[in-house]
């Protein structure tokens, strides 16, 4: 137990001190890293039932658009619009997943891809209120009461808190009875059906919970960027999200987060080769799927021995 706490504390300290360890212009990267952590973990939650949705980026976009519209048009404060956007996204997530519940495997991948595109096209199509292809601009920056979160460092800490809470909740879900049911569905949906588990209900539940947190990530992103447009949620970015999760591996809870961190580092190192980035990403994806289908997770038993030497952290990765 104390090992776990100390492990968490070390990670917490690292994340808290990161802003003082990097140059200011890298703050942007750190903030995006936090969005991606929430996003990838929420995606992983959906994946635990075996449903690899290809609409998750669009689902995040729903959160971004909701929070932008809620604060812009309704004038609600940011602290209220953040959770409300999560709920709105969860609801839209339900609408997306509903027609897909009778499908498995490819039907689900492709169907979710197409339905995600449908939602995205709504934003392109309707100028009012979504702003059409140019999207929304002048989204109010985040502030809570008197605290202005416009500056990168306060915003980073705010996102860190939200990410910590979100990931903690997802962790609790993963370890709960519900999380076990999700995994059981992945292993053998037919068996689950025969022992009385309502498979469609749980698949929908995973998708909706995942959508909620993706929506939170989207809302944070919208207020951070100040402007969003349909291009921010294209299928290309969906592939990047898949890469995070594949690289990290989905066997353990922390795989997705690990993937985000590793890939962010790789992208930072290869920044001079920006136009080759998709190629690098594509190669990494293929390499992992073909050579190391379990992701970095599989390497963990080996790396764990190393980690165990550092008090606490090894415990975390079990």
């Amino acid at each position: 137990m104390w090992k776990k706490i100390s492990g968490l504390a070390i990670i917490g300290i690292i994340f808290c001190s990161l802003p003082y360890m990097v140059e200011l212009y890298r703050m942007e990267v750190l903030i995006v890293l936090l969005f991606n952590l929430i996003l990838a973990q929420s995606y992983r939650l959906v994946n635990t039932t075996g449903d690899w949705s290809l609409s998750h980026i669009v689902v995040m976009g729903v959160g971004a658009y909701s929070s932008a519209l809620i604060t812009k048009l309704l004038g609600w404060p940011f602290w209220l619009s953040l959770p409300v956007s999560g709920l709105v996204t969860a609801f839209i997530g339900f609408l997306i997943v509903f027609p897909l519940l009778r499908t498995i495997g490819f039907g689900f991948f492709i169907g979710s891809f197409a339905l995600g595109e449908f939602v995205r096209l709504i934003w392109v199509k309707f100028r009012d209120p979504f702003g059409g292809p140019r999207g929304l601009i002048n989204i109010p920056s985040a502030e809570i009461g008197p605290i202005d979160l416009y500056q990168p460092i306060p915003f980073y800490y705010f996102c860190l808190i939200i990410a910590a809470i979100s990931i903690w909740i997802m962790y609790r879900i993963d370890r709960s009875h519900i999380g076990d049911t999700f995994k059981a569905i992945h292993t053998d949906p037919v068996l689950c059906e025969t022992i009385g588990i309502r498979v469609p209900r749980y698949r929908a539940m995973a998708f909706v919970i995942g959508a909620f947190f993706a929506g939170i990530a989207g809302a944070l992103m919208a207020h951070h960027q100040g402007a969003i447009d349909p291009h921010n949620f294209e299928a290309t970015l969906m592939v990047y999200l898949i890469i995070y999760v594949v690289v990290g591996g989905i066997e353990t809870f922390w795989g997705a987060a690990l993937g985000v961190i590793v890939m962010t580092v790789i992208f930072e190192i290869t920044r001079p080769l920006e136009e080759w980035r998709p190629l690098i990403a594509g190669c990494i994806l293929i390499l992992f799927l073909v050579v190391m289908p379990g992701g970095l997770d599989v390497l963990l038993p080996k790396t764990m021995k190393l980690f165990r030497k550092i008090p606490g952290i090894g415990q975390l990765f079990t």
């Binding site: 690899w52 290309t236 592939v239 898949i242 890469i243 594949v246 998709p278 190629l279 990403a281 594509g282 190669c283 990494i284 994806l285 293929i286 799927l289 073909v290």
Partner: peptide
């Protein structure tokens, strides 16, 4: 998924 990576390449 791997062919999704191939599209990028």
């Amino acid at each position: 998924m791997a062919t999704a990576g191939l599209t990028f390449i």
